[in-house]
Amino acid sequence: MAQITLIEAVTQALAYEMAHDESVVVLGEDVGVNGGVFRATQGLQEKFGEWRVLDTPLDETTIAGVTVGLAVQGMKPVAEAQFEGFIYPMMEQIACHAARLRNRTRGRMTVPAVWRAPWGGGIRAPEHHSEANEHLFTNIPGLRVVMPSSPARAYGLLLAAIRDPDPVMFFEPKRIYRQYKEEVPDDGEALPLDVCFVLRDGTDVTLVTWGAQVKECLEAADELAQKGISAEVIDVATLTPLDFDTIAESVTKTGRCVIVHEAPKTAGYGAEIAARLSEECLYSLLAPVERVTGFDTHIPLFRLEMKYLPSVERIVEAAQRTLAAS
């Protein structure tokens, strides 16, 4: 079986679902002949034709609104926002229509659509190409916000997102698009959209994260192990609706929690998880909940971006602080 990268897993999932469900169409800027600027849709237009893999006019609003119309009329569109930083013009269509049509028509109209977007920093990209803004979507009812962190989870979660009867934001951490390969059977098996994944068991502290920071958290867990600290690592994967039970169970066991994310700290999604922990797990906590996040600044241009992104060192220090507290 071939070993594939995260982005190849995205392509594999799209190709599988398009071959098995003719209502699935892909649309966006440069998704056709060019196969997407990151090559996520490579070869799809050749295989499925230009009416199922559509290059659109260069207008994010158009892509988002047309996606709503396609989905309402029985298609399963997978729209690409070329970069997370360009997603803002899409938000009205997503928030006002995609996320609420089922509710406002009492179930008469539904929007089974997926918006894929290469997400986050760390690839030395130009300005507006490195945003992490998942928290702007986690506050929108009626949406699912999903972020894979490995090739296998990219494949399984994207299949689940396309098959889901409701709109899904699928944010792809582009920093780890090609970071490593793993075996991903092309078997059409979806992963559940309502669970967090416990990637590493531990007993002293829980590291809660998603997207590209899963890598840093796993590395931090290795370093902590060398210092005799046992860290549990949770990949939230589906941010909303949240599987808080898995997080609560872990933190109840370890008594300590470090939340790691790339987006700015204030009102980032980590704030929601921290608040839930204080509401539901306070008496199990042995130390204040720590957050290791991007700063409340714009992500700098690329010379400084690695200073902005959470590092293994910052995660290890935060975990050690929780242990020092009790």
Partner: peptide, 11 residues
Amino acid sequence: CLHAAGSALAF
């Protein structure tokens, strides 16, 4: 208008 355009595309 874009919902209509998307509908037209589906048709």
